[in-house]
Amino acid sequence: MIRTRGLTKRFGRIVAVDSVDLDVAEGDRFGFLGPNGSGKTTLVRMLLGLVHATAGEIEVLGKSMPRNAAKVLPQVGAMVEGPGAYPHLSGRRNLAMFDAAGPGGGRRGRADRVESALAQVGLSGVDRRPVSAYSLGMRQRLGLAAALLRAPRLLILDEPTNGLDPKGIREIRDLLVALNEAGTTVFLSSHLLAEVEQLCTRVAVVDRGRMVLQDSLAALLAPTGHVLVRSPDAAQVVALLDGQVVARDGDRLVVRHADVAGLNADLVGRGLRVSGIEAERRTLEQVVLDSTGASGDRIDGPTGGEDR
């Protein structure tokens, strides 16, 4: 669905995106993670033809961009860096405007398209008040509705849950999962780990314009080969599993072992009490922190970060 090769964007001397090779397959729920200022938004804009690449190639829906924008973009729904709407018009009117502006925006069926998009994002009961009176969450939903107007094959969303309350976030997540199951590929760019972790099947991580990681979430969060054991008889466990214990902290132990159930049976079989046992998995946070540098909006002085 999306494929970039050596995609690079320079703004003057600043390299915003540095030879990124991105691969998003059909049916993916793809999470594009990165700290603020890491070039996520610039990359999304390049995918949509808003920003022109300095070098590299982009293919979206199998066609090169931005040359084929007129053919590709009608099948893409997008929300880039927050929603945009005419503040003095109602939400319905805004959607009608956007519907009329693009191809396939005939007068016939417009009301239906607008209503169904509003219903999808939970705004079907919205009244005639202007968007300027909307809450942040309502605007976010409206922006999402605009992206859904044409029942797109590919959804490119930049921070879609910004400003939503936890319940709203849950609703949107459910909507995206449902759309994905119905065949829509979802490309989600976010700096929120939890959001990506809960929604996505594949993840890419960018840091300072470079892509540092691209893999399926399942592979990233695969067991590490360690087992976390909690036992009141920790000392005996250490003695028993001599050499296999990697770390100990009171009654908590980290044991190098491939089979959790076997280890448990082994310990219990020797009369050692086990109050908790599970396979160790890395969190996405760890994965990201391991692969990226300092926070994107942190600016250290020349002598280091500790100066005041």
């Binding site: 022109h52 690449a53 300095t54 070098a55 590299g56 190639e57």
Partner: peptide, 9 residues
């Protein structure tokens, strides 16, 4: 890609 840069010009 040279074509990208010269497009504006």
């Amino acid at each position: 890609m040279a074509g990208v840069r010269s497009r504006g010009l």
